[in-house]
Amino acid sequence: MSGAETRSGTADNHVFDRTTDVPLSDPPAEQSTAGIVHDLGNLIQVASSALCRQTRHSRGSKMNAKVTENPQQHRFELPIADGAIAAAYYRLENGRVVLIHTEVPSEFSGQGIASQLAHGTFELLRKTGRKAIPKCPFMGQFLVKNPQYSDVLAG
Protein backbone atom coordinates (compact mmCIF):
# COMPACT_ATOMS: atom_id res chain seq x y z
CA MET A 1 0.00 0.00 0.00
CA SER A 2 1.23 3.47 -0.80
CA GLY A 3 -0.19 5.23 2.21
CA ALA A 4 -2.24 7.61 0.03
CA GLU A 5 -5.91 7.58 -0.82
CA THR A 6 -8.28 9.63 -2.89
CA ARG A 7 -11.31 10.90 -1.07
CA SER A 8 -14.06 10.51 -3.55
CA GLY A 9 -17.22 12.44 -3.07
CA THR A 10 -15.46 15.35 -1.38
CA ALA A 11 -15.57 18.75 -2.96
CA ASP A 12 -11.82 19.07 -3.36
CA ASN A 13 -10.75 15.63 -4.75
CA HIS A 14 -7.27 15.99 -3.23
CA VAL A 15 -5.03 12.96 -2.70
CA PHE A 16 -4.35 12.59 1.04
CA ASP A 17 -1.72 10.77 3.08
CA ARG A 18 -3.78 8.26 5.11
CA THR A 19 -1.61 8.53 8.19
CA THR A 20 -1.48 12.34 8.53
CA ASP A 21 -4.59 13.38 6.57
CA VAL A 22 -2.42 15.98 4.79
CA PRO A 23 -3.11 16.73 1.08
CA LEU A 24 -0.33 15.30 -1.16
CA SER A 25 -1.38 16.89 -4.42
CA ASP A 26 -3.56 19.51 -5.94
CA PRO A 27 -6.92 18.41 -7.23
CA PRO A 28 -6.95 17.39 -10.89
CA ALA A 29 -7.58 20.36 -13.17
CA GLU A 30 -10.76 20.28 -15.14
CA GLN A 31 -10.14 20.48 -18.88
CA SER A 32 -12.67 21.05 -21.60
CA THR A 33 -13.07 18.64 -24.47
CA ALA A 34 -11.78 21.36 -26.81
CA GLY A 35 -8.64 21.68 -24.67
CA ILE A 36 -8.03 17.93 -24.75
CA VAL A 37 -8.51 17.82 -28.53
CA HIS A 38 -6.11 20.78 -28.91
CA ASP A 39 -3.49 19.02 -26.75
CA LEU A 40 -3.85 15.79 -28.74
CA GLY A 41 -3.52 17.76 -31.98
CA ASN A 42 -0.28 19.31 -30.74
CA LEU A 43 1.04 15.90 -29.70
CA ILE A 44 0.26 14.43 -33.12
CA GLN A 45 1.91 17.39 -34.86
CA VAL A 46 5.10 17.02 -32.79
CA ALA A 47 5.24 13.26 -33.38
CA SER A 48 4.63 13.72 -37.10
CA SER A 49 7.43 16.30 -37.37
CA ALA A 50 9.84 14.00 -35.56
CA LEU A 51 8.93 11.10 -37.87
CA CYS A 52 9.44 13.28 -40.97
CA ARG A 53 12.86 14.39 -39.73
CA GLN A 54 13.83 10.79 -39.01
CA THR A 55 12.62 9.64 -42.44
CA ARG A 56 14.51 12.43 -44.22
CA HIS A 57 17.64 11.58 -42.22
CA SER A 58 17.44 7.85 -42.89
CA ARG A 59 16.70 8.38 -46.58
CA GLY A 60 19.61 10.76 -46.77
CA SER A 61 21.96 8.13 -45.40
CA LYS A 62 20.64 5.55 -47.88
CA MET A 63 21.21 7.96 -50.73
CA ASN A 64 24.89 8.14 -49.77
CA ALA A 65 25.31 4.37 -49.64
CA LYS A 66 27.38 2.75 -52.35
CA VAL A 67 26.48 -0.29 -54.43
CA THR A 68 29.16 -2.98 -54.30
CA GLU A 69 29.52 -6.33 -56.00
CA ASN A 70 29.60 -9.56 -54.01
CA PRO A 71 30.88 -12.05 -56.62
CA GLN A 72 30.76 -15.00 -54.18
CA GLN A 73 26.99 -14.50 -53.78
CA HIS A 74 26.50 -13.43 -57.44
CA ARG A 75 24.83 -10.17 -56.48
CA PHE A 76 25.18 -6.42 -56.31
CA GLU A 77 24.45 -5.09 -52.82
CA LEU A 78 23.21 -1.82 -51.39
CA PRO A 79 23.42 -1.44 -47.59
CA ILE A 80 20.20 -0.05 -46.13
CA ALA A 81 20.12 -0.03 -42.33
CA ASP A 82 20.95 -2.27 -39.38
CA GLY A 83 22.77 -4.78 -41.59
CA ALA A 84 19.90 -5.10 -44.09
CA ILE A 85 20.75 -4.97 -47.79
CA ALA A 86 18.99 -4.66 -51.11
CA ALA A 87 20.39 -7.03 -53.73
CA ALA A 88 20.38 -7.50 -57.50
CA TYR A 89 21.17 -11.15 -58.26
CA TYR A 90 22.89 -12.22 -61.46
CA ARG A 91 24.50 -15.09 -63.31
CA LEU A 92 27.29 -14.92 -65.83
CA GLU A 93 26.68 -16.09 -69.41
CA ASN A 94 29.39 -15.72 -72.04
CA GLY A 95 31.00 -12.86 -70.14
CA ARG A 96 27.71 -10.99 -69.77
CA VAL A 97 25.92 -10.17 -66.51
CA VAL A 98 22.37 -11.56 -66.64
CA LEU A 99 20.32 -9.71 -64.01
CA ILE A 100 17.77 -12.24 -62.76
CA HIS A 101 16.22 -10.88 -59.56
CA THR A 102 16.07 -7.67 -57.51
CA GLU A 103 15.20 -7.84 -53.83
CA VAL A 104 14.49 -5.14 -51.24
CA PRO A 105 13.36 -6.09 -47.71
CA SER A 106 9.61 -5.44 -47.47
CA GLU A 107 9.95 -2.99 -44.58
CA PHE A 108 11.91 -0.69 -46.93
CA SER A 109 9.65 -0.99 -49.95
CA GLY A 110 8.35 2.14 -51.65
CA GLN A 111 11.37 4.27 -50.70
CA GLY A 112 13.20 4.20 -54.04
CA ILE A 113 15.83 1.76 -52.81
CA ALA A 114 15.48 -0.63 -55.77
CA SER A 115 16.01 2.28 -58.16
CA GLN A 116 19.07 3.40 -56.23
CA LEU A 117 20.36 -0.18 -56.40
CA ALA A 118 19.74 -0.27 -60.15
CA HIS A 119 21.53 3.05 -60.73
CA GLY A 120 24.52 1.84 -58.74
CA THR A 121 24.55 -1.55 -60.47
CA PHE A 122 24.57 -0.04 -63.96
CA GLU A 123 27.18 2.54 -62.98
CA LEU A 124 29.40 -0.25 -61.65
CA LEU A 125 28.89 -2.34 -64.80
CA ARG A 126 29.74 0.68 -66.95
CA LYS A 127 32.86 1.44 -64.90
CA THR A 128 34.11 -2.14 -65.23
CA GLY A 129 33.29 -2.34 -68.96
CA ARG A 130 30.76 -5.16 -68.64
CA LYS A 131 27.44 -5.62 -70.44
CA ALA A 132 24.11 -6.60 -68.90
CA ILE A 133 21.12 -8.63 -69.97
CA PRO A 134 18.07 -7.67 -67.86
CA LYS A 135 15.89 -10.73 -67.22
CA CYS A 136 14.51 -9.26 -64.00
CA PRO A 137 11.26 -7.36 -64.74
CA PHE A 138 12.22 -4.51 -62.42
CA MET A 139 15.59 -4.01 -64.10
CA GLY A 140 13.94 -4.11 -67.54
CA GLN A 141 11.44 -1.40 -66.53
CA PHE A 142 14.21 0.62 -64.93
CA LEU A 143 16.16 0.62 -68.21
CA VAL A 144 13.08 1.74 -70.16
CA LYS A 145 12.77 4.73 -67.80
CA ASN A 146 16.54 5.38 -67.74
CA PRO A 147 17.88 5.22 -71.31
CA GLN A 148 21.18 6.77 -70.17
CA TYR A 149 22.26 3.21 -69.38
CA SER A 150 21.61 1.81 -72.89
CA ASP A 151 25.37 1.57 -73.48
CA VAL A 152 25.55 -1.05 -70.70
CA LEU A 153 23.03 -3.36 -72.44
CA ALA A 154 24.37 -6.39 -74.27
CA GLY A 155 23.42 -6.67 -77.92
Rank of each mutant, 00 (worst) to 15 (best):
residue 1 M to S: 15
residue 2 S to Y: 09
residue 3 G to S: 07
residue 3 G to H: 03
residue 5 E to H: 12
residue 6 T to Q: 13
residue 7 R to C: 14
residue 8 S to W: 12
residue 8 S to A: 14
residue 11 A to V: 10
residue 12 D to Q: 11
residue 14 H to N: 09
residue 15 V to E: 14
residue 16 F to V: 10
residue 16 F to P: 10
residue 17 D to S: 08
residue 18 R to K: 15
residue 20 T to M: 11
residue 22 V to L: 09
residue 22 V to H: 08
residue 23 P to S: 10
residue 23 P to F: 03
residue 25 S to A: 14
residue 27 P to Q: 13
residue 28 P to V: 02
residue 31 Q to R: 08
residue 31 Q to K: 05
residue 35 G to P: 01
residue 39 D to G: 05
residue 42 N to S: 09
residue 43 L to N: 09
residue 44 I to L: 09
residue 45 Q to W: 04
residue 47 A to H: 09
residue 47 A to P: 04
residue 50 A to Q: 06
residue 52 C to Q: 13
residue 53 R to E: 11
residue 54 Q to R: 13
residue 54 Q to K: 13
residue 62 K to G: 12
residue 62 K to M: 15
residue 62 K to W: 15
residue 63 M to W: 15
residue 63 M to Q: 13
residue 64 N to M: 14
residue 66 K to C: 11
residue 66 K to Y: 08
residue 68 T to V: 10
residue 71 P to W: 07
residue 74 H to E: 10
residue 75 R to H: 05
residue 76 F to Q: 10
residue 76 F to E: 07
residue 78 L to Y: 00
residue 80 I to R: 00
residue 80 I to Q: 02
residue 83 G to P: 11
residue 84 A to C: 12
residue 85 I to V: 11
residue 85 I to Y: 10
residue 86 A to W: 00
residue 87 A to C: 07
residue 89 Y to M: 07
residue 90 Y to R: 00
residue 90 Y to F: 06
residue 92 L to T: 13
residue 92 L to I: 12
residue 96 R to Y: 10
residue 99 L to I: 04
residue 100 I to C: 13
residue 101 H to R: 12
residue 102 T to K: 02
residue 102 T to R: 02
residue 102 T to Y: 03
residue 105 P to V: 04
residue 108 F to C: 01
residue 108 F to V: 01
residue 109 S to A: 12
residue 109 S to C: 14
residue 110 G to M: 01
residue 110 G to N: 04
residue 110 G to V: 04
residue 111 Q to Y: 00
residue 114 A to G: 05
residue 118 A to M: 01
residue 118 A to Y: 00
residue 121 T to E: 02
residue 121 T to M: 06
residue 124 L to D: 01
residue 124 L to T: 08
residue 124 L to P: 11
residue 124 L to C: 07
residue 127 K to G: 09
residue 128 T to M: 06
residue 129 G to I: 07
residue 130 R to A: 07
residue 130 R to M: 06
residue 131 K to T: 08
residue 135 K to V: 14
residue 136 C to V: 01
residue 138 F to P: 09
residue 142 F to G: 02
residue 143 L to D: 07
residue 145 K to H: 09
residue 146 N to S: 05
residue 146 N to C: 04
residue 147 P to F: 05
residue 149 Y to W: 03
residue 149 Y to C: 06
residue 151 D to A: 05
residue 153 L to K: 07
residue 153 L to P: 02
